[in-house]
Design a protein around this nucleic acid. Structure first.
Lengths: 455, 455
DNA sequence: CTGTTAGCGCGTTCAG
DNA sequence: CTGAACGCGCTAACAG
């Protein structure tokens, strides 16, 4: 028998009383009566049955007698227990109730409207196991029983607690999605598609912004691990290989954006940047442009590097001369594009077109061009990449390489889901490649200056 | 003693063996040997100590003898247990090992690298409670002990399981954020600010898109409830009052956007639309505009209604004549703005300015004006509302009423947090009002047409 | 200050 | 097919 049970019996509380039964840390004349003293008082009330404990207590010096009625009566209820139910102490010792009783505060949390599986089971008059089986449709439950259970669930408006379910089963049906920055217009559609896919499969999504900050990335990863996610999609480019180990060690499947899956349980969705750049450069070449500038993203990002090299390869294919002074670096944001364009204009006076590593960069570049008095596309053509929502509504509309973000996100989610559905985590995952497509808008036009540098 | 424990002792497995010990549902000559038959075999091996059970078993007909060695030897391991560890059966009955032993498959899951609080406690040679206390910094733990625990945590790379924590403590440190649609540029900054605030307080955010669909809103709410969120911010306008009850019944604090907190535990963050509209109209009035059109949002949304009435009030204040044909309705999206502008142009030929209920609408309207050959701002001025990221990069830049979304989100989170930190959920929450501020960009200019209709 | 343990709500296993 | 019991990892209450 525990002490709690002992107390319960001591206080004569019905067993059915839900919630915890506890004794308030009541105050005795300003001095907290807790710990040993309190317990000694209780011990002194032990029924004869617990002779052993009583004896042990007595042998320690018979603390029971040390608290006179007067002192016990001096107990006051601590403020935080105000309003709690006071249960008279029914001491079974020799059947004689003792005077100290009403001064002990028994706090029985008022029966909360517990909406757990037990409540449903009670209502449907079955066991909790049967309710669980009905909910999950696992084993066969007799039709009638199942119906009764379902009815009870509906009537009580019961939703199983996902935390408990995750704890017990080990599966959280939660998928992590790590992105750089939700305010970057590239991501919302990605997020939405991922979430839609998840909700369709009754899964949840935990979104984390790294804010381009490796430190915050660690925090994000920690959050994911703590929540025991069933899989993580890392859609930010600033990846650390150490991260892979962290997830792999815990057998958590991963999906990466624009990376080769080199480890077990890691798959990837890739954008065929070379195809995209090829289309962009071809488009410009067909319009007669030969002196084309390029504003890259931060070259420590793999995806930015890939776009960079893809641009170079495309230029080679179309025999467009690459010159270092025509290549500069932005930061994938508007400001970076603005500054990079400024720099390009300083070092080049003859550019007729600029390709940008992403749309925000292109928008910044167009802003700069506008302020410099250059017209887009008459004086200079601009091509972006991503096709964010904004790019349709700039003036002129931005010609850009559309990256199918919805498809990307859907494929990423499905990869993760496949592991949950039984794919082997020890096998290196698949690679899904998506080909972007050029969207022509108003920011590109035929090269008006006839002074081509070379054939 | 359980049956499991009995078996464990029977098989001579060490107590320290982690994981479950179970007997495979082995197959006997194609027939599953399970349930009663299997148990009878086991029972027959019971050590003398369990005389009582043995006796009971014998009285039922002495099933033990019914399985000859030959038959038992015919047991084969079911495929799903292939590769599992086989532990020889060590029968203690009179010390004589019996021949049937090796045929029983004992599956002991290989010890997984369990990263729980117990592992940390073992390593730091303290109790789990001490580890818990160190992590949560609740009660005082001796400096040296705490240091040892922290070291163990670091060495093992331990992260507490949040699901378990939520289950045990009742607090999930998870806050729900319900928005309409993450791809609507109004929301990402809101989301980001909310999340930043949450992460700063070591809380988590669960984001849900309703997609403007009441049905999906129900699903979102269900998700929130299942995750046992500590609070919910409903930042979408299409609210159902029935929802309030759902959350209130479960004592989950709420924050609403643009609504009066009428219930206990509900607070709200509001935008002072009249102040914003006043600035917008004043700006136009000062530029000499008197014939001003208005494109509202869907008027079933409270926030759209508020902006609508705020516009009317502002016009009255500046003695600008309101005419029904100058008011039309969009859908808070680009398309809606485009179509609404088309309609306005058809019914009005003399407009010199248009105020839009949000920026996307304004962008659509500008698109339409451009296609109609009208210049912004020379022929017609356009004012939006929200100040989304896009509006700085349209050409011309959009003059708009900046709604401080970061502040909004921060205040919303703090309201929720205050309940977690001890505010009474039974008290009607506070109301935080934010005043928007007009941002002047290029889409507004002085009225060029001198034919003012009235003084 | 630290150790021990009940119990959170569910899924799962095993006895009948 | 159903019910009883255990365990997931942690917190909080209690014991010393």
């Amino acid at each position: 028998m525990n002490f709690s049970e002992l107390r319960r019996q001591l206080y004569g509380l019905p067993k059915c009383l839900f919630g915890r039964v506890q004794v308030a840390a009541a105050q005795c004349r300003g001095t907290a009566l807790h710990g040993g003293a309190h317990r000694r008082v209780l011990r002194s009330c032990l029924p004869k049955g617990n002779a052993e404990k009583q004896k042990e207590e007595r042998s320690r010096g018979g603390a029971a007698g040390r608290f006179s009625r007067a002192r016990i009566h001096g107990l006051t209820i601590a403020p935080r227990f105000a309003g709690w139910q006071c249960v008279p102490l029914k001491c079974t010792r020799e059947g004689k109730p003792r005077a100290i009783m009403p001064t002990i505060v028994v706090a029985s949390h008022p029966e909360p409207c517990r909406m757990n599986i037990t409540a449903v089971a009670r209502k449907a008059r079955v066991s909790t196991a049967t309710v669980s089986r009905t909910i999950n449709g696992s084993s066969s439950v007799q039709a009638g029983t199942a119906e009764r259970v379902r009815k009870a669930i509906a009537e009580l408006g019961f939703h199983p607690d996902i935390n408990a379910r995750a704890l017990g089963s080990g599966r959280s049906s939660l998928y992590g999605l790590i992105i750089s920055d939700i305010t970057n217009p590239f991501f919302p559609e990605l997020v939405k598609a991922f979430e839609d896919a998840a909700v369709a499969h009754h899964k949840e999504v935990l979104i984390a912004n790294t804010g381009y900050d490796p430190k915050r990335l660690d925090i994000c990863v920690k959050r994911m691990l703590q929540r025991k996610v069933d899989g993580v999609a890392i859609m930010t480019s600033e990846m650390d290989d150490a991260l892979l180990d962290v997830f792999q060690k815990r057998k958590i499947p991963l999906v990466l954006l624009d990376a080769h899956p080199a480890s077990p349980g890691v798959s990837s969705v890739r954008i065929d940047h070379s195809a995209g750049m090829l289309q962009a450069v071809q488009h410009l070449a067909e319009l007669g442009h030969t002196r084309i500038g390029f504003i890259s993203g931060p070259l420590n990002l793999p995806s930015a590097r890939e776009r960079h090299t893809a641009f170079q390869a495309a230029c080679k294919q179309f025999r467009i001369r690459l010159m270092p002074r025509r290549m500069t670096q932005g930061d994938h944001r508007v400001d970076g594009g603005y500054k990079a364009m400024q720099q390009l204009l300083q070092t080049n006076t003859d550019l007729t077109a600029v390709v940008c590593s992403n749309d925000l960069t292109a928008i910044g570049a167009m802003e700069m061009l506008f302020e410099s008095g250059l017209r887009v596309p008459e004086d200079i053509s601009v091509v972006g990449s991503d096709d964010i929502l904004l790019s349709a509504y700039t003036r002129p509309g931005l010609t850009t390489v559309n990256v199918p973000r919805e498809d990307l996100a859907g494929a990423a989610f499905r990869s993760l889901l496949s592991y949950t559905l039984g794919a082997d985590v020890n096998v290196v995952g698949q690679e899904h490649i998506f080909t972007p497509k050029l969207v022509c808008r108003g920011s590109t036009a035929a090269n008006a200056s006839r002074s081509d540098e070379e054939p």
